[in-house]
């Protein structure tokens, strides 16, 4: 039987975030029809991009600015979509926005939910995610009429599968969209042009205690700018007040899976690994050859990061 799958598309200033394509790739399965739900733009503007990855229906929902900003309203919109199109599985990204949206949907429907997953088998309803601070991979059997999945950004390689899509406009029943006791006072616009989002970055250059002070992080920022990378940090660097908490990678910080993770002056504690062990390639720069990150990476440099990084910047500038 044909299954209808809903995919919540995350946009950034009206443009599709690249990381959606990996999610669509993950959601594609035999005998399924893929419904992309677009809440923040007109569907026509994203149609071609979505078709490239196999979307065949685009559900366009028109929301007022106020409604767009309210995660409770958004969750109820998705529930409307689920009911209107008989959707049995919903995929969204496990980003900051997704973490405030997908659990609301699952809670309202009393549906199963696995966040931060990177593999889904819709025939057997099996999902893979990490547990125990990233030390184990759990395979979870999900049951129920509707299954909700939060997909770890960057965890799935996008694969194209050209299709042609039809835009369907869903008329919403406003009375179904009431956010009881929940009001938005202010939303912050993330300025993506200057601040590359840590969880979605292809390259992360991170610093730890070995960076010695906050000023030295400007060296990392400079290198990151040249590499089109984001800057991350260990908890020690955050606790010392050198950089804000939002830059912390690890068990109690962000969980990231960039293509390349460059760790500068980071020893590689279990808690730090919990946040970056799913990275593609790990390059460690550390003065101590015995630091645990040195035996758990792809490349290591036994040297002072404060000597290597400026050289790297110099070569990037001359490139």
């Amino acid at each position: 039987m044909m299954k209808n799958i809903g995919i919540i598309i995350e946009l950034d200033n009206g443009k599709i975030k690249e990381t959606n394509f990996g999610m669509i790739t993950l959601a594609r399965a035999k005998d399924t029809e893929l419904f992309a739900v677009v809440m923040d733009a007109d569907a026509a503007s994203v149609k071609e991009d979505l078709e490239l990855f196999g979307i065949t229906k685009i559900v366009e929902v028109c929301l007022s600015k106020d409604q767009q900003a309210n995660p409770v309203v958004r969750a109820k919109v998705i529930i409307n979509v689920i009911k209107a199109y008989n959707i049995c599985a919903v995929f969204g990204l496990s980003t900051a926005t997704g973490k405030d949206l997908l659990p609301r949907i699952a809670a309202f429907l009393e549906a199963s939910l696995v966040m931060d997953c990177y593999a889904v088998d819709l025939e057997q309803n099996l999902v893979k995610t990490s547990q125990y601070s990233g030390k184990t991979i759990a395979t979870i059997k999900v049951t129920g009429d509707v299954l909700v999945f939060g997909v770890r950004p960057n965890a799935v390689e996008p694969v194209k599968a050209q299709a042609s899509a039809r835009i369907v406009k869903l008329k919403l029943d406003e009375s179904n969209l009431v956010a009881k006791g929940f009001r938005v006072i202010k939303t912050s616009e993330v300025d993506e042009s200057t601040n590359i989002n840590l969880v979605e970055a292809d390259v992360i250059i991170a610093g730890g205690r070995g960076m010695k002070n906050g000023d030295n992080f400007t060296i990392l920022s400079k290198c990151a700018e040249k590499l089109n990378a984001a800057v991350g940090a260990s908890r020690v660097a955050v606790d010392a007040g050198w950089v804000p908490y939002s830059m912390q990678v690890g068990q109690t910080g962000e969980k990231v899976s960039p293509m390349v993770y460059i760790a500068c002056g980071i020893s590689g504690s279990v808690q730090h690994f919990a946040g970056m062990k799913t990275s593609g390639m790990v390059i460690a720069i550390n003065t101590d050859g015995n630091a645990s990150i040195m035996s758990n990476c792809d490349y290591y440099v036994k040297a002072d990061a404060l000597e290597i990084i400026p050289e790297l910047i110099k070569h990037l500038e001359n490139d």
Partner: peptide, 16 residues
Amino acid sequence: KAGMKIVELEPLLQKR
């Protein structure tokens, strides 16, 4: 009627 049941746990092996 909905549920999430762990059927298998594996250590996340470091293949690096």
